[in-house]
Each structure stands twice: as C-alpha cells, then as structure tokens.
Simulated assay, not measured.
Amino acid sequence: MNITGRLTADAKVSKTTTGKEVVNFSIAVNDSYKKDGQRVEHTAYVDCAYWRTAKAVTWLQKGLLVELSGQISVRAWKSQDGTAKAGLNFHTATIKPLARSAKNDDPLQDSTESENGRTATGDGNDDLPF
C-alpha cells in the first residue's frame, strides 16, 4: 500500500529492548471533497515506523512531503484513565521524499542516503530531491 503525506514533526529514533533501532514519525494525509457545494477538508494522522536504517532520521524533518510504501495496521488500547483509544500504524518499507516544506530549510540539500542505498541530492532549483 502507498500513502502520501507531510511529516508532522521531525522523526525520532528509538530502540527496542533488544537494541534494534526504529525510526518513528507521523504524517498528515489530507483529503478534500465537496458536500452540498462546499469543500470539506479532512486530515488523517498516521504513525509510521521505519526499521531498515536509522540514518533516515537525518532527513525526515517536519513538513517534508513523502510517499511511503508498506503495510497499514490498526491499534486499539485503553489510556491510563480508562478511555478507549485507537490509531493507525504504518510499517514503512520504502520512503520516497517528494517535496520539502517552504517554511523549513531544505533538509535534502545535502546528499543523503535513501532507503535503497542510492544518493538523493537537491540543488535548490526545485522541490525534487533527485
């Protein structure tokens, strides 16, 4: 499955109890449609986990537009106060950076190694890092 969205915050690396590193980040997926002639905007937030390399954390910055491939899952739990909670998880297999945020410095201007081992570079002339 593929999804496209913008990072809501800079990615963070955490470790499992066995020492395996995982890059965690969240994206906002926007959708809009017309209802009774009015445009309705809807945003879904998806928590993502990327297990292949922790190096991705260096360029996964807030506002970056990415296309992700992987598997989606749903989780449900009860908070400490007993309230039922639910969320989406996306187990990311590949990350394709599409465009940086106009508000941020260019996170892709320097060469960065992508998840498939190729180098993605941006020269600042356009929004595409490759």
Rank of each mutant, 00 (worst) to 15 (best):
D106P: 01
D126Y: 08
S79Y: 05
R100Y: 03
V46H: 13
L98D: 07
G87D: 13
G19E: 07
I72A: 02
G122E: 11
R118I: 07
L98S: 05
Q80Y: 05
L64D: 02
G124L: 03
W51C: 05
L65C: 10
A120K: 04
V57C: 10
A9H: 06
D126L: 03
A93Y: 08
G70I: 11
G37D: 10
L68F: 01
D110E: 15
I72N: 10
S32Q: 05
L60F: 11
G87T: 07
K35C: 02
A93C: 00
S14M: 11
G5P: 04
F90I: 02
F25N: 04
K96T: 09
V57K: 15
S69N: 01
D31E: 15
G19T: 06
T8Y: 00
M1T: 03
K15T: 13
D106N: 15
E67Q: 13
A11N: 03
R118T: 13
N89I: 07
Q38Y: 04
L98P: 01
Q38I: 09
G37E: 12
D126R: 08
L88P: 02
R75H: 09
R52Q: 11
Y50D: 08
S69F: 01
D106Y: 00
D81H: 04
G122C: 06
D127N: 12
D126W: 15
I3M: 09
T43E: 03
I27W: 02
K15P: 03
G70T: 10
T83K: 15
Q71T: 14
T94K: 06
L128H: 15
T121S: 13
K78T: 09
C48R: 06
T58V: 13
G5Q: 04
H42C: 04
T94P: 01
D81F: 07
G124W: 09
T8N: 03
Q61N: 15
P107G: 12
K62D: 10
G117D: 07
L65H: 07
